[in-house]
């Protein structure tokens, strides 16, 4: 990854009548970076992508630059730099895979020879050669998504935009898709990916933007998110005997359904030592099977969304 900016978006806003889908969103994506946009349904992820790809017109004050070129002024030059894989296949269903590739290639200004050669390479790579003359409407979802990848890559774009690329796919197709995304990274492509799958984001993304209600509420790499946004780990343990009411009031202690206890901890070593003092030394209650559970990105995500929603409700009530 280098420091040149592939995508720079400033003050993006999109309203649908009274509903604000994207609210003053700004971000930068560096060349070669894999950035994930995470968020619940209706957070504004797809709308943001549609603003980036020129599907929605930018209003006064909004700005998108693709490799320093203004999208408003150079729509054609900017659009050619994108390869887009949508959540639901948008290839022509009555065209065969080959016809779709030919049409797409011509739209992106490729010569017949280039279309032929590149199609062959891509179809081989995505194991679609035997489906060359099959109408796309006859393909399974996984195959359709692979065909979409071929269409997105045909003109060799430097930026790939993937909208929920593994949503609803079978495990084999998910594996192929993830492997490909990592190979694109190796090839130096800039990738912007929206996903519901937090584990996927954690595995493949260099940086994560968390969106909620049209705004970016967090922008950091997965590890920083875990560390900075919710540095609380959970200490899980068993006890030899029942706890009396005094110990049950121990700060943040929760009795779990499996009979174990859990304590939230911002400083595991300190809390473990206090736990030992309170339980074992003062009350002669042995603790065993101690486990430390790291906060997952999923918990960070849920926490951030919950806090953001509570904050917004609070503001509204004020």
């Amino acid at each position: 990854m280098n420091e040149s900016i592939a995508i720079s978006a400033s003050n993006l806003t999109k309203k649908f009548d009274d509903f604000t889908a994207v609210n003053d969103v700004s971000f930068k994506i560096f060349e070669g970076e894999i950035v994930g946009i995470l968020g619940p349904n209706g957070a504004g992820k797809t709308t943001t992508l549609r603003l980036l790809t020129g599907v929605y017109k930018l209003e006064e004050g909004e700005k998108i630059e693709i490799f320093n070129e203004n999208l408003k002024d150079n729509q054609i030059n900017c659009k050619i730099k994108f390869g887009i894989v949508p959540e639901i296949s948008n290839a022509y269903s009555d065209f065969t895979v080959l016809e779709n590739l030919e049409f797409s290639g011509k739209m992106y200004g490729l010569s017949k020879e280039e279309i032929k050669n590149r199609s062959k390479i891509l179809l081989e790579r995505f194991e679609l050669l035997d489906k060359l003359n099959a109408k796309t409407k006859t393909l399974s979802k996984g195959l359709k998504q692979r065909a979409n990848l071929c269409l997105a890559l045909l003109h060799e774009p430097p930026i790939l935009i993937l909208d929920e690329p593994t949503s609803g796919l079978d495990p084999i197709s998910v594996k192929i898709m993830r492997k490909q995304i990592l190979e694109f990274r190796k090839a130096g492509k800039t990738i912007l990916i929206t996903t519901h799958d937090i584990k996927e984001a954690q595995t493949i993304c260099d940086r994560i933007l968390i969106m909620n209600k049209g705004k970016i509420i967090a922008d950091a790499n997965p590890d920083t998110l875990r560390r900075d946004f919710k540095s609380i780990s959970t200490i899980i343990f068993k006890t030899e005997k029942e706890l009396d009411s005094k110990l049950m009031n121990y700060p943040t202690l929760i009795k779990r359904s499996d009979g174990t206890f859990a304590i939230s901890s911002e400083n595991v070593l300190k809390d473990l030592s206090e736990l030992y003092n309170s339980f074992t030394l003062k009350n002669q209650i042995q603790i065993s099977d101690v486990k430390i559970q790291e906060t997952s990105l999923e918990e960070v995500f849920i926490d951030l969304i919950k806090n953001d929603s509570t904050k917004k409700k609070g503001v509204k009530n004020d």
Binding site: V55, P86, A91, Y92
Partner: peptide
């Protein structure tokens, strides 16, 4: 309906 319009609108064509 088939979503292919989005493909065209985001392609380099006016």
């Amino acid at each position: 309906r088939e979503k292919s319009l989005e493909r065209i609108i985001s392609a380099p064509i006016s």
